[in-house]
Every structure is written in structure tokens, then in C-alpha cells.
Amino acid sequence: MRKQLPLLLTGTAALWVVLCQYIHQFNALKMMGTTDQWQQIIVATMTLVGAVNLTRIHGTNIQRRRSGYYNSIALLVALWAYIAMGIYLTNKHVTYRWVYDATCVPWEATMFSMIAFFIASAAVRTFRIRTAEAAVMGLVAAFVMLGNVPLGPVISDKIPQLKDWLMNIPNGAGFRAIRIGIYIGTFAAAMRIALGLERAHLGSGAQ
């Protein structure tokens, strides 16, 4: 029953969505919009479940004095204090927004900026010319990079045009092929889940 009920719910929900998408009368009643609202309500409820689960895990860490338990204390204080602050002040309040803008935003920006250095080191490794394919890729990359910097048009007017052609035609075609494959793959994966063939999300034994 523990496995069958979620499978039954999944199959019914999948059938419901198909009906909402393709049956004229369901569509006219805007049933898809209603279904989306149901999903939002479920996810909002699950957010609370997530917060409770997080409290349980980190509460156990603190209780058992596991290594780094003080980090768990910091997490729980931040989590519940910020929730309380949001409820008390509402999420439009300047102080509530400042806490986020003055901490999370600069931290995230710092990490995001680091990507530039990581890209540089990955590029050095990738563009080592060891095979004929790597040589072609290196050459193409050189033209694309030149086409994107002011030096490119100084060398030749053709470089930005070549860059545009490389990006729009061969590169665009490759990406579209991958995307078409993804759409078909997503459909097959959705069918496997709706029919209850793929059940990894219900626990390993369900597979």
C-alpha cells in the first residue's frame, strides 16, 4: 500500500493533466490553471514539512553534540528567526529585505564572480590540441572569442560575421538537435513515471 498509493496518485494526476491539456471542455473551464494552483498549495505545504525536517535533523545534531553542532545552532536560529521576522514585519518591510540584501546577495555575487576564474582554468585544459577534433574546436573557439572582443573587427570585418555564422548555424543546429532529443526523452521519462515503471523516487526497492 505504501508503494501502490503514490503510484495510483501519480497515474491519476498524469491522466488529469492530459485531459486538461487536450479536452476542449476541460480547457474552457480553465482546469489547468486550477491544477497549477493545487500544485502551488502542495509545494507551499511541503515547504513547512521541509523546515520541520531540517529542524529535526539539526536538532538531533545539537542534542548529540555531533562535530560542528554549533553550525546547526546557527542554522536553526537563522531559519526560525527569519521566519518569525517575516511573519511579524511582513516580507515587504525594509529591515526584513535588508537582512537578505546585505548578506545573501553579496555572498552569492562573490561566488558567481569566481566562475570567471574557473572557466579560464577549464578552458586552458580543454583547448589543449591533442587530436584533430580538438584542433578544430580550438580554431573555432579562437574565432568566436576574437569575434566577441574589439580586436576581432580590427583584424578583419569578416571575423564578427564568421563568429555569428558559427554560433547561429553549426552551433544552433547542434543545440536544437540536443533539445529535440531532450523533449522526446522527457516524454518517455514522464510516461515511465506515470505508468509506474520508474519508481526510484519511492525508494530504491521500488525500482
Binding site: 532529443g181 522526446i184 526523452g185 516524454f187 518517455a188 515503471l197 526510484a200 525500482q207
Partner: peptide, 29 residues
């Protein structure tokens, strides 16, 4: 690449039912 990750469950489990869905997907392609 892309949809290859969706074939992972079928490929790794070697379950005929799941492999069948991947073959059906290839026919679609």
C-alpha cells in the same frame, strides 16, 4: 548529453520494461 540522463535508470537497472521505453523513445526520435 541531454536526454541520456533519462535513459540512465533503464540502462543501469537492465530492467526489460524500462529498456523497452528507451527503445520506443528512439523510434520516436
Amino acid at each position: 548529453l541531454g536526454e541520456e540522463i533519462y535513459a540512465g535508470g533503464a540502462y543501469l537497472s537492465k530492467e526489460p520494461n524500462l529498456i523497452g521505453t528507451v527503445v520506443g523513445q528512439d523510434w520516436g526520435r
